[in-house]
Design a protein around this nucleic acid. Structure first.
Lengths: 136, 136
DNA sequence: CAGTATCCGATTGGATACTG
DNA sequence: CAGTATCCAATCGGATACTG
């Protein structure tokens, strides 16, 4: 049992690691923010509630599949509420919860950082690309 | 030209939208943070510089491919520096730049938010799952 | 030690069509 | 209007093997 391949050792490490990540709040949140549509939905809803079709229009080009998937996940996490008005035709409104509004503030912080530092990133890229070519 | 299918209209919207997103700093940053390994590498390097193999050990289970890919991207963006010491065998150190340390502060803010609110998210999930089952 | 190159399985997400 | 269900193409990322 002392003989374990590198792959086996990595596999084991990865398993433990994943388990650790699953329980890590920061990683869970990053997973959410990572989702392209999540941040857009939250931002879109920040000013106030919207209907399903309004959201579809706001998030240009989103497929119904992804929109529904995203909304369900956010509803489950308590980020937003889904309100059905049983008129004809039905009307469904989505609105940020207190938690959701709190999250939108964090997104604002991300936005601030991005706007403050994006220039540096662009400059760094130019330099990297230029230097890379010159180094050959 | 008045006749355009729904798919075509969505496609056009998506194209413009993508172009918009490409130029949006916030979205660029979220794209970065979205990468599972990026935040981990930045966090790992926050205390101080590390060698390639040290990073590989710290980020349990990462494949050389992903590690290199992540490091290259972060180097290009000016988040970290790559220093080669031409000894035998070669030694390569990775260290956060000023920009990288600034980013690590943002990650800390994310961490704070996550730790503060993750309980609410968990509760919301339990309620959602329970309520969902009861509603059937 | 610090990667690079290739293959390939798994996941993602868009298109499309249909339903209450 | 507000979704659901299915199919499928593309992308991602891990395993593996090889190099300076």
């Amino acid at each position: 049992m002392a003989t374990m391949t590198a792959a086996q050792r990595r596999e084991e490490a990865r398993t433990e690691y994943d388990a650790f990540l699953k329980g890590c709040p920061t990683n869970q949140l990053l997973d959410r923010l990572s989702d392209k549509w999540v941040s857009l939905v939250v931002s879109a809803l920040a000013p106030g509630p919207l209907r399903y079709s309004d959201l579809a229009r706001r998030l240009a080009g989103v497929s119904p599949k992804m929109l529904t998937q995203t909304l369900r996940a956010l509803e489950r996490d308590g980020i937003l509420t889904r309100t059905v008005t049983p008129s004809v035709p039905v009307r469904v409104d989505y609105e940020l919860t207190e938690l959701g509004r709190s999250l939108s503030l964090l997104l604002l912080a991300v936005k601030d950082w991005a706007e403050t530092h994006i220039e540096e990133v662009w400059e760094a890229r130019e330099q990297y690309d230029a230097g890379d070519a010159a180094a050959s």
